[in-house]
Write a protein that binds this DNA or RNA. Sequence first.
DNA 1: CATTAATTTGTTGTATAAACAAACTAATTA
DNA 2: TAATTAGTTTGTTTATACAACAAATTAATG
Lengths: 398, 398
Amino acid sequence: MKKRYNQITSINPKVGRNINRAIILNAIREKQPISRTKISEITGLNKSTVSNIVTTLLGEDLVREEVAKNREVGRNPVDLSIKREKNFVGAIYIDSVDTMLAIVDIDGTIVKKVTVKTESANPRTFIPACLDTLKKMHSNHTTFLKQIGISIAGIVDSAHSRVVYSSNLGWQDIDVGSIIQENNPEIEIVTVENDAKASALAELVLGRHKIPSSNFIFLSIGPGIGAGIVIDNHILSGNSHAAGEYGHMTLVEGGEPCTCGNKGCWEVYASDRATMRYFSRLTSQRDSNVDTESLIDRALEGDKNAVEAFRKSAEYLGLGIAGIIRTIDPQSIIIGGSIVRAWKIIYPVIMDTVYQRGFFGKQRNTLILPTSLTDSPPLLGAAALSIRKIFTDYRIVL
Amino acid sequence: MKKRYNQITSINPKVGRNINRAIILNAIREKQPISRTKISEITGLNKSTVSNIVTTLLGEDLVREEVAKNREVGRNPVDLSIKREKNFVGAIYIDSVDTMLAIVDIDGTIVKKVTVKTESANPRTFIPACLDTLKKMHSNHTTFLKQIGISIAGIVDSAHSRVVYSSNLGWQDIDVGSIIQENNPEIEIVTVENDAKASALAELVLGRHKIPSSNFIFLSIGPGIGAGIVIDNHILSGNSHAAGEYGHMTLVEGGEPCTCGNKGCWEVYASDRATMRYFSRLTSQRDSNVDTESLIDRALEGDKNAVEAFRKSAEYLGLGIAGIIRTIDPQSIIIGGSIVRAWKIIYPVIMDTVYQRGFFGKQRNTLILPTSLTDSPPLLGAAALSIRKIFTDYRIVL
DNA sequence: CATTAATTTGTTGTATAAACAAACTAATTA
DNA sequence: TAATTAGTTTGTTTATACAACAAATTAATG
């Protein structure tokens, strides 16, 4: 059965209880280890209420108890944390060439991971095949996988787990949720999302930045530029499921042509492809052996042309980021993609440009950070889609 | 005492009751006239609960009863609607030249309005003077004004009712809330907001569009371009209180200089000032008697140069709007400002440009609409700030 | 045309759920 | 043993749900 966010339209005791349960569960996730008393203090809920709800969470095998011994005086608290190695979700990231499959613990730990070739021509056979693989990967466990998250480059109607359009995969109107649940009735929830949006969610749910942000933009720099916009802890989906298409924001009016048919799009000037173009112009050679990864290696080794190519991309990155800051004014901008490896080269250039072009001398304090995720953001994003539903399966509408 | 949104961190019976009260109150506001039974149906709350809460709303003089007679069978329902001529708020819109003051009913009706010259040099005397005027305007009523809303062009920290910076007024770090409440202890709530954001809120709370939108952008076209971004029924304030500075989004890289120090900003190409510039270039005359209003009149009368000037501005408007659609993908874009009078001239040009430059052939259905407000949007916005707090004085944070 | 049935609205009285408050037990240090 | 902090227990309060009922109205019927 298809499930989505429960759209809450009014409060009754049961709904209230559920919200409080989610609040406590998230408090444990974010502040673990944490005691019942501490939870009571930060949530404002009575100690007895917290105890009561924690008992149910223990029963659901979502939370783990452990006696702590770090008090100076008084009885030792019982530390609560999210129970690991008990609840898992399936994650699938379908890219144009490869598809990554993973079994992920609800704390975001990737337990198993495989990569297969994407067979995009036939989604009705390829997607079930992915599920079979996932099930095999999880067969040593007694519990079934109940949740699957999928991230895909393209326009995704996440509320209906449907791919609207993906030029990478050549897909149009593919009801991924139905394809999975027709063949796998034991799967309770399937969530599909655009890869950049999923990456943003991964950063929100599983990210390890020192200053957590509830309003930020995740910029995914690859061959093109995608983005996920997080506002008040929610992914901005967009009226046509297409929010965050920053790659095709016009940066240079009347500039160089883009694959989209327009001219002067941001990703023509600041993507991996752009960096490669800058490099081959500088070296006036078409070295077909040079790919983005090796170009980063060269730059890190000090190759002047490679460094210059990245600096040029970084300048345009900064230009676009300045625009984002002026319009959305987020708490932070988090950058993902191979280019993050060259952070020490690109960061100063980005910041210089942003300061020159974006701040107008006024004090702004937008953080520009590399992703804190330690594995593929879109894959972790696919997992985050499911993990998030376990932790807060509703949204209040007012 | 300063009051803000109550940030709710957990649900208890009282909080739940309050949320339900707000849900019912807003249901009445949006669907009035409406019966108790209908409210029960759309909210999912039990009839008895609705009755109970409605009784308190009647006691608070916020709601009015009236027997309806339009049923086919069965007992006639009792129509509920928002009570008028009972609860008023004060609204102030401080512009660089003029300041508008108004007493506004909670249904958005402007009861009284005056315009005074802005004396921006001395906010500590000017603001209290405005309040005295407002009080005199309301002196025939037995009840005091308890809420004041203020809109100002500039960067405003609305959560602390403080003007951070306003180049128009030459203000920096002015604690408007304190200035008012020091001298007027009877004023319970003061809300200050940027004028474009306030206008967006007015459209949200008091707008009369056929298709109401919870995700939209209000574009305020004047000498410059400001914007208010509404996402999930909330104004996006921004990390530095500066979300929506679309006027200074770079549209033409390396283009014409802007007052902000950058080049090629949107408002250099698509504001009233831009239209005037296009016109004077076309006529190669510097007619100092021509202002925006008269230029609109000329265009509407068929003056070819005037029409052409507006078409040029409209093209750039469309260009910027295409960018907004690509990045935020809102349900609608609502345009305010004098230029709306020339809607029949600018709308086709805007739409053409947006279709050509923004949609890439994919189906999008973003509505582009003129404001539905019948009085000054920033003034109604100032009122909306207060009215909104009466209807929902809290925000759930998860 | 009076009467009855059917329908819909809104109220009342009771039951239930969940949070709160305060007292209490438990565990620990000084 | 006193002081302190953690977590539980018991009874109270609050608010919603449920179900029966009263009220008001139209349509049908003899």
